Amino acid sequence: MTDEILTLKEVAEYLKLAEKTAYRLAAEGKLPGFKVGGSWRFKQQDVAAWIEEQKNSSKE
């Protein structure tokens, strides 16, 4: 299985963000994630794609 699932804490560490910031971005729909039993989860592939989108949009 190539799609690794990250927890909120793991995605915050990956993006070098505070957990509260990652939670807020996910809750606002700005960070691609989904809830499982009330806890946020993120596909690593989706987060990587989101990073690329952020890089491209900041160049415009």
Rank of each mutant, 00 (worst) to 15 (best):
P32K: 01
A26S: 11
D3V: 04
L31Q: 01
A26F: 00
N56P: 00
S39V: 13
T21E: 13
S39N: 09
W40K: 09
S57T: 07
T2Q: 14
W40D: 04
E52T: 02
E28P: 04
E52F: 05
T2V: 12
V11W: 08
A27R: 14
F42C: 01
K20D: 15
A18G: 13
M1S: 15
S57V: 08
A12N: 06
Q45Y: 05
L6Y: 01
S57D: 01
L6H: 07
E10Q: 12
S58L: 09
G33E: 03
E19A: 14
S57P: 00
E53G: 08
E60I: 11
A27Y: 15
R24F: 14
G37F: 06
S58T: 00
D3W: 09
M1Y: 14
L31H: 03
E53R: 14
R41C: 07
G38K: 07
P32E: 04
L6F: 08
N56W: 01
Q45W: 09
Y14P: 07
N56V: 05
A12E: 01
F42W: 00
V36L: 14
R24Y: 13
L15W: 06
T21W: 03
F42T: 08
E52P: 00
K30R: 12
G33M: 01
K59W: 05
V36C: 05
G33Q: 12
V47A: 02
S39K: 15
Y23I: 10
V36S: 11
E10G: 02
V36P: 08
G33Y: 06
S57R: 11
Q44D: 10
F42N: 10
K43G: 06
L6D: 00
I5S: 04
L25V: 12
L31P: 03
L25M: 15
S57N: 10
L31G: 01
A22W: 03
E4Q: 10
I5Q: 13
K35F: 10
G29R: 08
K16V: 04
K20E: 15
T2E: 14
A27N: 15
L15M: 04
A26T: 05
K9C: 11
G38E: 10
F34T: 01
G29W: 07
Q45M: 09
R41D: 10
S39Q: 15
T2S: 12
R24H: 13
A12H: 06
A12C: 08
F34H: 08
A49I: 03
K16W: 01
I5M: 05
R41G: 07
K35L: 14
A18C: 12
M1V: 13
V47N: 02
K35D: 02
L31F: 06
E60R: 09
K9N: 12
Q44M: 10
Y23V: 05
G29M: 07
K16T: 08
A27Q: 15
Q44Y: 11
L31T: 08
I5Y: 13
K30I: 09
E10S: 09
L8W: 06
R41Y: 03
E28T: 02
L17R: 04
Y14D: 07
L6E: 01
I5A: 11
